[in-house]
Amino acid sequence: MNDFLNFARANGIIVPDTFTPGRWIRCSTESHPRKKNGSIKLADDGLVGWCQDYAAHVEPIMWRANDGAALAAPIDRAAIARRQLERRRALIEATLGARAFYAACAPLRDSHPYLAGKGLGVAGCLGLRVDTAGWLVVPMLYNDKILSVQRISPEGEKKFHFGATTKCAYYVIERQGAAVTVLVEGFATGLTIFQAVPNCRVIVAFNAGNLVEVATRMKRHGMGVVCADNDHETEKRIGRNPGLDGARAAAAVLGVGVAYPTCAGTDWNDYVMEQMELAVAGQSFSFSRKRSVTQIQAAAFADVKLKVMREAKLMRVN
Rank of each mutant, 00 (worst) to 15 (best):
A55T: 09
A106N: 03
C125Y: 02
F101M: 08
G134T: 11
R175P: 03
F7D: 13
A103N: 05
F287V: 08
N241G: 00
M62Y: 00
G190S: 11
L115F: 08
L47E: 04
R109K: 12
A249M: 09
K118C: 15
R88H: 01
A164C: 10
G209L: 08
R240N: 06
F206D: 00
N318M: 15
D267K: 01
G255Q: 12
N269I: 15
W268R: 08
L120W: 06
G12M: 12
G222F: 08
A73L: 04
L91I: 07
L120K: 04
V212W: 04
C200P: 06
A94I: 10
G12E: 10
L136A: 02
N143P: 00
Q150Y: 05
N230T: 09
G265I: 14
V197N: 05
L108G: 07
G134A: 11
R289V: 02
F206L: 04
V204M: 05
M62P: 01
G163N: 04
L126K: 02
R9L: 06
M1D: 13
A81V: 00
R289E: 09
G49W: 03
G246I: 08
A79D: 01
G117A: 13
I40L: 06
L183I: 08
E86L: 06
T266W: 00
E277L: 15
F301M: 05
N210G: 04
R220Q: 06
L136G: 02
T95R: 12
C263A: 15
L306N: 13
G257P: 04
G49P: 02
A264V: 10
P16G: 04
V149M: 09
A169L: 07
V226Q: 09
L42S: 01
A281F: 06
S284E: 07
G257F: 06
P113L: 13
R82E: 03
H161C: 02
R99K: 12
T266Q: 12
A264T: 12
K307L: 12
L244K: 06
A94G: 04
A300K: 02
N207K: 11
N199V: 14
C51W: 02
L71Y: 09
R175E: 14
A215H: 03
K305A: 15
G282S: 14
A8N: 02
D303K: 12
W50N: 01
I146D: 00
A259F: 08
Q52G: 00
C168K: 08
G282K: 13
T266N: 13
R310I: 10
A205Y: 03
C200Q: 03
A116M: 11
A94F: 06
Q275E: 14
G257V: 11
T234V: 15
A302T: 01
G97H: 05
M315P: 08
I146V: 09
A133T: 12
W24R: 05
